Computed example of a mutant assay.
Amino acid sequence: MNTLIKLLKRLPLYLLIGLVALYALFPFYWALNTSFKSESEMFESATYLPENPTLKNYEYVFRDGTFLLALRNSAIVSSAVSILSLTVGSFAAYALGRLRFKGRTIILYIVLSMTMFPSISVLSGLYTIVREFGVFGTPLALIITYPIFTLPFTVWVLTSFFRGLPAEIEQAAIVDGATPFQTFRMILLPLTAPALVTTGLLSFVQSWNEYLFALNFTITEPSAQTVPVAIAQFSGKVARQEPIAEIMAAAMIVTIPLVILVLIFQNRIVAGLTAGAVKG
């Protein structure tokens, strides 16, 4: 009886969780469902399951050399941006989280304020910089501009994590004769693994999905475009065809690996995001 009462009390919570999950997952399910439909079935009626599932849409996407090249570009750019953000961000976070100097709180809030600027507001300035550096129309243009929005988040999360590490660990390393850099590289940095995984993965996902910069900096060079731009420029097999099913298939191809990565590292992501939330 007590078990039934407890279950009834929790029923509204379970219903709310179910509604939120349905709201979040239904667009993903509908895209997956559409990717297995033929063009005729897709426009005839809206069905929750494909009547005649087909893999032709995926075959079309994998035969598209431009899409495969864009997939490679996205992997290179996203990996490079993640590594760059973690390398620079870890040094900055160590300084802001462990060292004592005047103005570090102000600097930290300035770093945080950089995330408040919309991408379009800095686009014109970055466009000029990319032109001046001579990297316009290359993946390097994206690698040097994406840290604008991945680095502040990385610094903020890692700073909270470094602050949460016990001071005794660093003091013991100094007593044993370790230099500040050795203490950072060999002792403190390995302890920040959850935060490194979190920020690295989120930087990777953010770079993978970014569209505005990728479109403007590679618009004249299709061979340097990333997957969001390549998918947006999909054309049909015949004139005036809207390749919706093919676009959904391509979206599934680029989304499922990210979902798998998040599921694999979900525990470390939660640990990294909550790092420094409780002091003790």
Rank of each mutant, 00 (worst) to 15 (best):
residue 209 N to T: 12
residue 98 R to Y: 08
residue 257 P to V: 00
residue 185 R to P: 02
residue 209 N to C: 04
residue 232 A to S: 13
residue 151 L to F: 09
residue 6 K to R: 15
residue 155 V to W: 03
residue 211 Y to Q: 13
residue 117 F to S: 10
residue 5 I to A: 15
residue 134 G to Y: 10
residue 215 L to S: 05
residue 52 N to M: 09
residue 36 F to M: 10
residue 246 E to A: 15
residue 270 V to E: 08
residue 178 A to D: 04
residue 272 G to Q: 03
residue 37 K to D: 02
residue 54 T to S: 13
residue 232 A to N: 11
residue 99 L to P: 08
residue 258 L to Y: 02
residue 230 A to P: 05
residue 236 G to L: 05
residue 86 L to T: 08
residue 112 L to P: 07
residue 279 K to W: 00
residue 87 T to Q: 04
residue 146 Y to M: 07
residue 154 T to L: 05
residue 253 I to K: 03
residue 140 L to S: 12
residue 113 S to D: 06
residue 68 L to W: 14
residue 261 L to Q: 06
residue 85 S to Y: 07
residue 229 V to C: 12
residue 150 T to N: 03
residue 13 L to D: 09
residue 256 I to V: 13
residue 215 L to V: 12
residue 257 P to C: 01
residue 164 G to L: 05
residue 28 F to V: 15
residue 242 E to C: 02
residue 167 A to C: 03
residue 63 R to F: 12
residue 271 A to P: 06
residue 108 L to F: 11
residue 66 T to A: 15
residue 93 A to R: 09
residue 123 L to R: 06
residue 121 S to P: 01
residue 221 E to V: 13
residue 184 F to A: 01
residue 71 L to K: 02
residue 271 A to R: 12
residue 21 A to G: 08
residue 213 F to K: 00
residue 149 F to T: 04
residue 124 S to D: 06
residue 190 P to Q: 05
residue 59 E to K: 09
residue 144 I to S: 01
residue 14 Y to R: 04
residue 182 Q to T: 13
residue 248 M to L: 13
residue 148 I to H: 14
residue 77 V to T: 13
residue 260 I to G: 03
residue 77 V to F: 12
residue 100 R to P: 02
residue 39 E to F: 15
residue 70 A to P: 04
residue 173 A to F: 00
residue 59 E to R: 15
residue 202 L to W: 07
residue 47 T to D: 09
residue 125 G to K: 06
residue 102 K to Q: 07
residue 105 T to C: 00
residue 68 L to R: 14
residue 204 F to G: 00
residue 100 R to D: 10
residue 251 A to R: 07
residue 74 S to N: 03
residue 56 K to W: 08
residue 249 A to C: 09
residue 248 M to A: 15
residue 119 S to Q: 13
residue 251 A to W: 04
residue 41 E to D: 12
residue 248 M to R: 02
residue 172 A to L: 03
residue 94 Y to T: 00
residue 240 R to G: 12
residue 264 I to L: 14
residue 171 Q to V: 05
residue 153 F to G: 05
residue 81 V to N: 01
residue 258 L to I: 10
residue 54 T to L: 04
residue 252 M to P: 02
residue 86 L to K: 11
residue 229 V to I: 11
residue 170 E to P: 01
residue 239 A to V: 14
residue 83 I to Q: 07
residue 201 L to T: 11
